[in-house]
Design a protein around this nucleic acid. Structure first.
Lengths: 205, 205
DNA sequence: TGTTGTGAATGACTTCACAGCG
DNA sequence: CGCTGTGAAGTCATTCACAACA
């Protein structure tokens, strides 16, 4: 504990948190590593081991207090605050992300959106006005925004990435269908739906 | 080779294919495991080892023919055909997915969409008409559809899942923010944006 | 009794390093 | 000569199994 925690463990924590949120919403006060594992299709030992990297959150013989464990995980993941997020690419997907209330309710507020298509610039979507990409670097810097979502076509993705990184963004959720090149300190998560689908079709017919 | 291939390898193949598609589009004819690795932030040895599970696709001293390797990966992943997909949940995200041309162009055609909101049923989105969820099971069975996308709110996700599984769906891409329970033979990929974002915020400030 | 937290044992994945070949 | 394909070695992750304890 306190050591460098493997990324594979970090990747599972949001999944645990999501399950705990669900239990909490159902009014469940206590759970166990076994119950969580059944819920998530993972193993009880793995959940206990993962949590042990960060401290002792359970009670022997009893299990975990759902609300308390959720709170701890939020703290660990820095999900106990609201992150300001910029969105680049105001196509259909961009619109859907802006309107998505779940994202906002769970700690990520899209505070600005950019597009390089003059037809889209100036349009209002939800609470925000689509801005010209040219103002992007400036605005991100001024607001010290660390999280960005890319929802532009493949050919624009690397250029957008370079601007985001230069402006100080540290985490990028990339919906475009190409790998983007970033310095080692920048985190990237890929969300291209086709890649996700292809991970499953291998197993079909 | 020919043995059971680890899922972790399967999960990387679509990433390789995506990079190859990109190189192909740029007119690059030959590449190497090193070049691919640089591109993807992985390692040359890992790419070679992954590919070795399926055969020998390269030429010593030369590298890989981009078009040929891409073709082989498509064959392995069953991405050399078009998959019919059903979408459940015709909210903003559902609309965006239906309209997303990239998905269709890369082998996944959304052929039907369902929603339980009478306000949405009957509406035309792109080429398709939103149908009542009540007809879902019937239609999936009749068309023998194996792939589904869930884009409904959390509280509806498990109910939808049960119907999909009963109707014969074998692969589910789940955008809802909860874990869904399925029989072991059914594949699930999660695409909740908040989970993806939380995997990165751990590393921030 | 029931469940956690955790060393030890096992298992899986990645990297190394080089023979083999174009 | 350069790069692949691959056993062997090394590293990392998961599972086991049980002491500790409410």
């Amino acid at each position: 504990m306190g050591n460098q925690v493997p990324d594979i463990v970090i990747r599972r924590l949001p999944v645990y948190l999501r399950a705990l949120n669900h239990l909490e919403a159902q009014g469940v006060a206590i759970t166990s590593s076994q119950e969580l594992a059944d819920n998530l299709g993972s193993s009880a030992a793995q959940i206990r081991k993962d949590l042990s990297h960060f401290g002792e959150f359970g009670k022997q013989g009893t299990g975990y207090h759902v609300g308390y464990l959720a709170k701890q995980l939020r703290r660990i993941l820095h999900a106990d605050r609201t992150w300001e997020v910029v969105l680049v690419g105001a196509g259909d997907l961009g619109h859907a992300l802006i309107r998505n209330q779940g994202i906002a309710r769970r700690g990520f507020r899209i505070v600005a959106a950019f597009d390089n298509d003059p037809e889209r610039v100036g349009a209002r979507v939800g609470d925000i006005i689509i801005q010209n990409s040219k103002t992007m670097r400036q605005e991100i810097k001024a607001r010290r925004i660390q999280v960005a979502i890319i929802a532009v076509p493949a050919q624009a993705a690397q250029g957008v990435t370079d601007i985001l990184v230069d402006a100080g963004v540290k985490a990028i959720l990339n919906y475009s269908p190409i790998a983007i090149n970033v310095p080692p300190a920048i985190r990237v998560q890929y969300a291209d739906p086709v890649t996700l689908l292809q991970r499953m079709t291998y197993y079909l017919s």
